[in-house]
Amino acid sequence: MIKVENLKKVFRSGSTEVRAVDGVNFEVATGQLVAIIGKSGSGKSTLLALLGALDMPTEGTIEIDGKNVTDLRGKNLLTYRRTSVGFVFQNYNLVPNLSALDNVMLPMEFAGRSAAERRSRAEHLLQSVGISGDILKRRPGKLSGGEQQRVAIARALSNKPKLVLADEPTGNLDTQTGQKIVELLRSLSRSEKTTIITVTHDQAIASLADKVYRLHDGKLTGS
């Protein structure tokens, strides 16, 4: 259960003020797939950053299973980023110098898992997103966009997060491949009991979502 109340993020640069997120309220039940749509610059990425505790809100609260995320500092903040959320990005953001397998193992290393545990879970996850064999040893530069995004999804799920945040996960993929990625997210949210909040322009995702919100100038409207 995710509960967002009066969430605001104001960017100040000199005298200008940008209200990127401007008083957002919503609730998502565990295991749901939620889509957020909106024009460029409407504040979608900023909202995801706040939900993932990558940035501090100017005002408001985010509660996940009753715990206030906006109060987290220092080590607790790192622990939240490591274990409670997973990110999937439009341009994959895999670490270029690491193999697919190492990329998936990375968040588990930060979370302090043993090497053996990291390896077996990473192999299992990659298997379930359809990556196996010698692809495991390849670096991102030698993977297709679709393969990279599968690896990124496996990486996002590695520490069994309650929440997966995806920012335009199909934005760089062709319709067919994007469709497969969406179906993958959908089925994983069911099997791993993970809530998924995804920003998208993609009607296919929106049609699969349990809920669709529209963001306009930092303000959220339901649908």
Partner: peptide, 16 residues
């Protein structure tokens, strides 16, 4: 820069 931001988003501490 981007890679460092990725590591931070994945929960790596600055010290790491």
């Amino acid at each position: 820069r981007k890679e460092i931001a990725v590591l931070k988003a994945l929960g790596a501490g600055d010290a790491t």
